[in-house]
Every structure is written in structure tokens, then in C-alpha cells.
Simulated assay, not measured.
Amino acid sequence: MRKVVLKMNVSLDGYISTPSGGLDWVFRSFDSGLEQYIVNLLWQADIHIMGRKTYDVMSEYWLTSTDSYAAPMNEIPKVVFSRTLMEANWKNSRIGQSDLEEELAFLKLQPGKMILAHGGAGFAQSLMKLGLVDEYQLMIHPVVLGEGIPLFKDMHQALPLKLLDTRVFDAGVVLHVYQPASSLKYRH
């Protein structure tokens, strides 16, 4: 069975963006090692999943980008989960055919490599609350935002995690790879 991997950039104090959604702080601590790691991670998936907001931003940007992330982002199939998006025009993308839990159960049973989830906060939190994340790849950046949009929000039960791996990159980003320590589904 394929696993769902959630890849997120996180500030030291647990935020994934500024209150207004800004991400400029993420790029201050990128280095060539981190870039290569992420490119390799992107190629390890054969499906990328995301919510509508992330889809809107990514589809606009990656269509014309020539940077190292562009090839895997454009070539690997994508499934966007949205109740409002009417069509998915980004190359190799489609709208999920059913609800998130049902569609991911179907995708996980298909042969292939991992399913890589790209956040936005709302989409990531939905995956976590439904217990659909099999592995967390958290890139902890050396910055404290003080406020913003948290990765872990409204988790009404503890989410025990098992540390699988860590890696420190030259610019100070620390990768933490975790898997859920139990198979409980965390719901409201």
C-alpha cells in the first residue's frame, strides 16, 4: 500500500506562513542541499495532492517556471481536492472524484510510489484530522515568526509521532521525518 507523505516548511515556533499567508521567510534559509533534497523527494512521488488554494498558486507559477522544481511539479500527476474548482487546467492534474478520505483510500491501494501532499494549512489539517498522513516531512526553518498560520491547529487529541530521521542543512534548516505512532484517526 502506498503511503501519504505530508511535506511542509515550518517555522521554529510551528507556523507555516505569516498571518497574511506570506512565505518569504522560507526562502531565506534555502541552500543547494535542501533544494536537491526537495527535488529528489518530488520525484519519489507519482501523485501530488493538494487543496484548491495551493493548486491555484502552484499551477500559475509552475507552468512558466524553469527552476529545478518545475519538471517534477509539471510532469507528475496531481489531484486537487476542492468543492468549488470546476476544472483543473494544469498539465497532468485532475479534481478528486470523491471526498478526501474515500479518494485517498482508493489512491493508496493503487500500485506505485508515494503520494506527496502539499499544504496549505487547511488541506494539511484536514489530512491530519482524518488520520490520513503516513509520514511527516517537516522542514524546520531557523526563524521565529511569533504569529501566523499554525500547522497543528484544533487537534483535540494528542498526535503521538515516531521520529524516523533527521538531517541538518547548511543554512540551518532541520528536516524531521516522523510517522504516526498509532493508527488512531484524530477527529473532532
Results as ranks from 00 to 15, higher is better:
residue 111 P to V: 02
residue 63 L to R: 12
residue 33 G to R: 08
residue 151 L to I: 00
residue 93 S to V: 03
residue 28 R to G: 12
residue 115 I to A: 10
residue 184 L to D: 13
residue 27 F to N: 15
residue 78 K to R: 14
residue 139 M to S: 00
residue 156 H to A: 08
residue 171 A to Y: 02
residue 21 G to V: 01
residue 104 L to P: 13
residue 84 T to D: 06
residue 15 Y to R: 05
residue 174 V to G: 01
residue 80 V to L: 11
residue 148 G to F: 03
residue 35 E to G: 10
residue 147 E to L: 05
residue 151 L to E: 03
residue 125 Q to H: 10
residue 87 E to G: 06
residue 77 P to T: 01
residue 110 Q to E: 13
residue 145 L to S: 07
residue 176 H to Q: 13
residue 79 V to I: 15
residue 67 D to N: 15
residue 124 A to S: 15
residue 135 E to Q: 15
residue 161 L to I: 00
residue 132 L to Q: 06
residue 104 L to M: 11
residue 118 H to D: 04
residue 69 Y to V: 05
residue 51 G to K: 01
residue 126 S to D: 15
residue 133 V to E: 09
residue 167 R to C: 00
residue 71 A to T: 12
residue 39 V to S: 06
residue 136 Y to W: 11
residue 116 L to C: 09
residue 148 G to Y: 07
residue 25 W to R: 11
residue 76 I to A: 08
residue 102 E to W: 07
residue 137 Q to L: 02
residue 54 T to H: 05
residue 42 L to S: 09
residue 155 M to E: 07
residue 170 D to L: 02
residue 15 Y to A: 06
residue 92 N to S: 06
residue 99 D to H: 04
residue 92 N to Q: 04
residue 100 L to T: 05
residue 31 D to W: 08
residue 124 A to C: 13
residue 123 F to K: 01
residue 89 N to E: 01
residue 126 S to H: 08
residue 159 L to P: 08
residue 152 F to M: 12
residue 60 E to W: 00
residue 43 W to L: 12
residue 131 G to W: 14
residue 167 R to T: 06
residue 185 K to R: 15
residue 183 S to Y: 13
residue 52 R to N: 04
residue 35 E to P: 03
residue 26 V to G: 04
residue 17 S to H: 03
residue 170 D to H: 07
residue 19 P to H: 13
residue 172 G to V: 06
residue 62 W to A: 12
residue 77 P to A: 06
residue 78 K to M: 14
residue 105 A to N: 14
residue 50 M to K: 02
residue 141 H to S: 04
residue 120 G to I: 00
